[in-house]
Design a protein around this nucleic acid. Structure first.
Lengths: 223, 223, 223, 223
DNA sequence: AATGAATGAGTATTCATTCAT
DNA sequence: TATGAATGAATACTCATTCAT
């Protein structure tokens, strides 16, 4: 009732609606764009739709991103950085057997990336790569190369510790990663519209895939 | 005036040629369309370009296919049939160990499908599945299901013959197929524009993948 | 009833409507564009309006001219070539006094260019020059330079024949041409919307302008 | 409560400053707008650019001028007043020969108007007249009519004093003014982007133009 | 059957103008 | 007053599709 309380002068909750929004806008737009690009592809996504889903007008979208193509690139950059950097950190502190490390990394990758909406951009890029060679190269450099390197180091660890037999590293790395990325692509393309009978449970599959790989890589036990 | 002259044979031959062309048209269009759809995706492919590459006019394209979407579907249907039917026949007559059968089937699949232009439709479908659910279902029924079934039967043969241990069949099938299909997608999207250092040699990879799978599936030898 | 008359096979009047149009289209579009550009300027002219005035659809316009800017350039080129080449021919055969030649050329210029719709592009270019430097240069090269040269030669003829006193050629040329071009600009901008009391009759004005120039250039008669 | 305290003067001064700025705003905006309209034309000038050049925000522009069109009109009105009112005063006090008066007036007009930025509005109006008939009429009334009247009086003075022969006044006035205004338009459109070889020196040209006019108007000296 | 001129719905992008702060 | 984030009407241009020939 009495306005003598100094606290009432500071409308903490209200704040400047417009100004607050300005900071939030790019994020909101990127999220809306991610949804739609993943769902419909680059060309089939109309920029106005992105704006509407972000709760703004067409014009506002172009206030933050100069073109649909730049929006696309921003979406990719925004979502690619995460999974790689996060994943790389795990390797260092691990002390157990490499087979367990491999399983752990795969499970983490799924939980933190594959299972999230962001995994849609892997599908996106592979689908649109030929139309956006620049992005393809970016993806190669920022995701494929470091991811490959990470897995290679894990395998090397197994060899160094006498757990794994020697192997053709590049192809083995590909053999380990391909099913994971394909899983993500599948989830974003075929899975939603197809027979549940053929649906794959990711966690289960990853466990099995890791097991298969490990069995295939393990040094054969002597007699 | 008199038709006995040998010259009159020439018009006949011409007419013949034309009829052959007429029958060939849809095929030429489908081939041109496959090329372009694979290369640029559905949206970025202009129908006139398809016509030009097939050596006909825009109008002719629509004479054979009522719309770009129908052309796309026809391209997919046309190319889906091949790999499955061909592959299925191999299994029956094989008598050697299942590990060899698996390797043989994979190599055949690559040679007859993965290495051909037609493999582009796998990429196509997975890329466009969400925009063409009908096609996705079609692909599921015509390719995924029979392909899955084929691999499943191979694995079952290994189990039945005491070569393979028992296993989670659906996930194992996926583990076997995923890298192969991913290999095809990679070839059609990232590979062309990326660092040769990371390039994968398909034949080599398939050998390694088959070996890894077999090692992982083989019954452990008793002591 | 009997088609034996060979004449009936040649539908001279009907002809191929579509094909005939194809040849006519660019001209029709250029004319419509000239009208509108002159009337409203480049920016204020909507390309669809041009199409409509030419009796075709938006799409057809872009079938013949790849962009509004190219259409504009085509309009300029189409209309600039004429006045210069035509005018240049006059000079050669003239035998009378240079004062008469000057008057004649001015009158011809007005009749063949100034009085026509095409003169609107002079106004157009001068109005839009800063936004289309390329066109400005084109106008300079194709119209200003040859026109200047023509007048210069006329003046030189007067000097050579002892009719005119010696003079500062470049500035005199400008003094002769400026009012003519300004007359055209005036006609296309102020004249239509302004008080008839101040309206200038071009033929009358040109006669007076020529007379003034000649009086100013004539060698003073010695005593 | 009591305003006698000297401290209260400080806020006043500040307020004063602000008020001055406030009063200056329209002028700053008009100046910025003049620059840009002259340089790029009405349509190609973006209102935000005007605001930026004036050192204020987009919103502020619309605080002072309700629309871009009104801003344009204001720019024109603002700059139209100057040349006319200033010029008219000169005539009265002049005592020398009319030929000198004419030269003097032309030189003054160039120095005070033609050479200044404000001359851009002549180009502006003539370029945009058909899109702003209202302005064209305004220009006619405020500039053309009084300017014409002024020149007419000068010529009449020449006739009355027996210096000039009798003449067709309206056309002669046009013959005198046209090259001057055209000079201004040329300067603002073609000159900047074209071959220096064809560049005209205004002062020189005006001298020659005045000389030509006077020679053409002077009463022929009797024998 | 084949052609290719013509169409017009559809989309990215711009920019004058508004208005909450 | 001043700001600048937000708006949405307006517009150039594209491209699948039609249809007269």
């Amino acid at each position: 009732m009495h306005s003598s309380s100094p606290a009432s002068d500071v409308p903490l909750q209200v704040a400047h609606k417009r100004e607050r929004r300005k900071d939030a806008r790019p994020g909101e737009l990127l999220e809306a764009a991610l949804d739609l690009f993943v769902e419909k592809g680059f060309a089939a996504t109309r920029s106005e739709e992105v704006a509407i889903r972000a709760g703004v007008s067409k014009g506002t979208l172009f206030l933050y991103f100069p073109s649909k193509e730049e929006l696309f690139k921003a979406v990719v950059r925004e979502n690619l950085a995460r999974p790689v950097t996060e994943g790389a950190a795990e390797l260092a502190g691990f002390t157990g057997p490499t087979s367990e490390l491999l399983l752990h990394l795969m499970q983490q990758w799924w939980a933190r990336y594959g299972a999230t909406k962001a995994s849609g951009i892997s599908k996106l890029i592979i689908s649109e790569a030929s139309n956006f060679p620049e992005l393809a190269r970016f993806y190669q450099d920022e995701v494929v190369a470091p991811g490959t390197e990470l897995v290679r180091r894990v395998l090397q660890r197994g060899i160094d510790r006498g757990e794994f037999r020697s192997m053709d590293l590049p192809n083995t790395v590909f053999a380990i990663m391909a099913p994971l990325i394909f899983l993500v692509m599948w989830k974003h393309s075929m899975a939603p519209c197809c027979d549940p009978a053929y649906r794959i449970d990711p966690e289960q599959f990853i466990t099995l895939h890791a097991d298969l790989m490990v069995r295939g890589l393990l040094k054969e036990k002597g007699p």
